[in-house]
């Protein structure tokens, strides 16, 4: 193992068989192209065979996540965070994966519940990606769910697995403040997980940052919406409700949802 040359040999196990004759370049290119074509055909076939299942699962994951943090909305709208503000439509020509998204949930009576927002930031080991329900008018959180984290198993990953930690976030107003376990004294304080202070704190910080960043935009959107709503309600009261619920591939959604 010490000599790189021997390692090279191990990787390629045996020396190549001796060259017997010159192979024409045409044959080389032909072989490669042929192999490439076969590979391509195989891949396209597999891609199309598995795509529906994958897409469906991703959509399901997103739906479940939004459903969890917004406490079971009947439907939700996907909105885009554009430089000029939040909008339901993309500017023409723009690709939707380039924009951060927020999800606007409604209950069965079609009353808005709140927004599902994605927050991402450094944790103890790596990035923590969260989705959380938020009511911008009241400034209150509705619920949180960890989408991705690599926190210490059995310790930091309690932010994901410990329900008693997660439920603390339901219905409290931002900005949040992390305190030691058993020392909660104010409504907006979150008790940290014993032994996983950093991870707990990272969750609180990421949430606070996302709220500070997005709350003004959301409020502006709601204000604009309210204005449109009052004017539209007279002419077309069902306009908002009839907006189709757009389900987009979640993978692209979540990836570009990062700040």
């Amino acid at each position: 193992m010490s000599d790189p040359a021997t390692l090279h040999d191990t990787a390629h196990a045996v020396p190549p068989p001796p060259l017997t004759q010159d192979v024409s370049t045409v044959k080389l290119v032909f072989t490669l192209v042929f192999a490439g074509v076969i590979a391509g055909v195989l891949l396209v076939f597999a891609f199309h065979a598995t795509l529906p299942a994958i897409e469906a699962h991703k959509a399901e994951v997103l739906r479940a996540a939004i459903g969890e943090v917004l406490k079971g909305p009947a439907r939700y709208e996907t909105l885009y965070v554009l430089p000029e503000g939040i909008s339901a439509t993309l500017p023409s020509g723009a690709r939707e994966k380039d924009f951060e998204k927020v999800f606007y949930g409604f209950d069965a009576q079609d009353t808005p519940i709140g927004f599902a927002l994605v927050a991402m930031g450094p944790g103890f080991q790596d990035q923590i990606k969260l989705i959380f329900g938020f009511d911008p008018r009241a400034g209150r959180l509705l619920g949180i769910k960890v989408l991705e984290s690599k926190e210490t198993p059995g310790l930091g990953d309690k932010i994901e697995k410990d329900a008693s930690f997660r439920t603390q976030f339901e219905g409290i107003a931002a900005p949040l403040l992390g305190v030691k376990k058993g020392e909660k004294s104010a409504e907006n304080e979150i008790e940290m997980i014993t032994g996983a202070t950093i991870s707990s704190r990272a969750v609180v910080r990421n949430l606070n940052q996302a709220v500070t960043r997005l709350q003004p935009l959301l409020l502006a959107y709601l204000d604009a919406q309210a204005k449109v709503g009052t004017t539209q309600e007279e002419s077309n009261p069902k306009a908002t409700a009839s907006t189709p619920n757009r389900v987009v591939p979640v993978d692209a959604d979540l990836r570009s949802a990062a700040p």
Partner: peptide, 9 residues
């Protein structure tokens, strides 16, 4: 090094 540059709040 865990949590480096992400611990301070």
């Amino acid at each position: 090094f865990a949590g480096l540059l992400s611990g301070g709040a």
